[in-house]
Simulated assay, not measured.
Amino acid sequence: MIRVGIVGAAGKMGRALCIAALDDPDIELVAAIGRSKTGMRVAELVGRPDTDVRLSDRLETLLDANVDVALEFTSPDSVMGNARWFLDHGVHSAIGTTGIGAEDLAELRSRAEAGPANMFVGDAFSVTDAVGRHIAKIAARYIPNVELSETHPPTKADAPSGTCVRTAQELARVGASSPKAASREIIPGARGGEIDGIRVHSLRQWGGPGFEEIRFSLPGETMTIVLTPWSREPYANGALRVAKAVVNRRGFTYGFESLLGLD
């Protein structure tokens, strides 16, 4: 049994993680950290009777519970502080919060490689995201013209999402770019933002937890890859898969695709 503590347990993703952890026979949920609902039983939070764990606002609760792995799904403004705490206290961690910049990733990599705690960082712990991006990188070798769009609820903290940013960066590395357009923007921003030469459009609408569309084009033809999660369950299951791997995966690992052999 792997003893898991969830940081950000009171959020929507955190609740999905709690449910997935309670359903996994190889995982024991032993701690739940959140900024809100302190003292509430996780059983009450997620509508399940099979745990006596209560929400705490103290990271030290992870040490008190003797966790093997901390799952971090909070917000871009708190993730680095939490990540540094894990490394300082020798706690293995799987971090799914997006918005960590290149310099911060380099710091985490250096510290994880030098210390006793292993760390796994991913922008999306989803099989379809990882496989879809892998297919897109193959397609980009032959169809280099591409634009991206992503849709999340209006409550999404960042735009574009960290997942979409990484998709653009990965496609740019294999030579993809958005075609130059003669269109003059009548309204600034109508053509979206640009990441490494690739146009990215962020929609903020109610619906599912997040969608991404990768649209390739050549004269007279298009090809679209659409990544469509209908719930947070795929990300929760992927995070638990990472939790089981990170205890034996020395140092620092970036990207869920590495667990699937796609890196």
Rank of each mutant, 00 (worst) to 15 (best):
residue 17 L to H: 13
residue 103 E to V: 13
residue 262 L to R: 03
residue 246 V to A: 02
residue 69 V to L: 04
residue 128 T to E: 11
residue 232 R to A: 06
residue 155 T to E: 12
residue 56 S to R: 12
residue 178 S to R: 00
residue 235 Y to W: 07
residue 153 P to K: 06
residue 245 A to K: 05
residue 228 T to R: 05
residue 237 N to P: 00
residue 212 E to D: 04
residue 164 C to I: 13
residue 75 S to H: 13
residue 194 E to T: 15
residue 239 A to M: 15
residue 64 D to W: 05
residue 169 Q to H: 10
residue 24 D to M: 01
residue 3 R to F: 09
residue 34 G to H: 03
residue 41 R to T: 02
residue 207 G to C: 05
residue 41 R to K: 14
residue 167 T to E: 00
residue 184 R to E: 14
residue 219 P to R: 08
residue 41 R to F: 01
residue 178 S to D: 10
residue 196 D to L: 09
residue 39 G to L: 01
residue 8 G to Q: 07
residue 244 K to G: 02
residue 113 E to I: 02
residue 131 V to I: 15
residue 20 A to T: 08
residue 228 T to E: 07
residue 7 V to N: 08
residue 258 S to C: 01
residue 173 R to Y: 03
residue 15 R to C: 13
residue 261 G to A: 06
residue 36 S to A: 10
residue 205 Q to W: 07
residue 5 G to T: 05
residue 4 V to F: 03
residue 181 A to H: 13
residue 217 S to F: 02
residue 168 A to D: 05
residue 147 E to Y: 07
residue 76 P to N: 07
residue 33 I to C: 05
residue 150 E to N: 14
residue 213 E to D: 07
residue 199 R to P: 00
residue 177 S to Q: 12
residue 223 M to I: 10
residue 217 S to H: 08
residue 165 V to C: 11
residue 133 R to D: 06
residue 46 V to I: 15
residue 207 G to A: 04
residue 200 V to Y: 11
residue 6 I to S: 02
residue 157 A to D: 10
residue 135 I to R: 02
residue 158 D to L: 15
residue 222 T to E: 14
residue 98 T to N: 10
residue 119 M to H: 02
residue 93 S to H: 04
residue 172 A to N: 12
residue 185 E to Y: 06
residue 49 P to S: 13
residue 111 R to D: 08
residue 238 G to L: 04
residue 140 A to N: 03
residue 45 L to G: 01
residue 62 L to S: 03
residue 206 W to T: 12
residue 155 T to W: 06
residue 92 H to N: 15
residue 34 G to C: 06
residue 183 S to A: 15
residue 24 D to T: 05
residue 15 R to S: 10
residue 233 E to I: 15
residue 38 T to D: 00
residue 209 P to S: 04
residue 226 V to M: 08
residue 82 N to C: 00
residue 187 I to A: 13
residue 172 A to I: 10
residue 33 I to A: 03
residue 77 D to E: 14
residue 21 A to C: 05
residue 8 G to D: 12
residue 242 V to L: 15
residue 151 T to Q: 12
residue 23 D to I: 03
residue 6 I to V: 15
residue 207 G to W: 09
residue 220 G to P: 07
residue 175 G to I: 15
residue 72 E to H: 01
residue 189 G to D: 14
residue 119 M to Y: 02
residue 89 H to V: 03
residue 28 E to R: 13
residue 137 K to W: 00
residue 111 R to Q: 12
residue 137 K to A: 08
residue 210 G to W: 12
residue 130 A to Q: 04
residue 46 V to F: 11
residue 73 F to C: 06
residue 226 V to F: 09
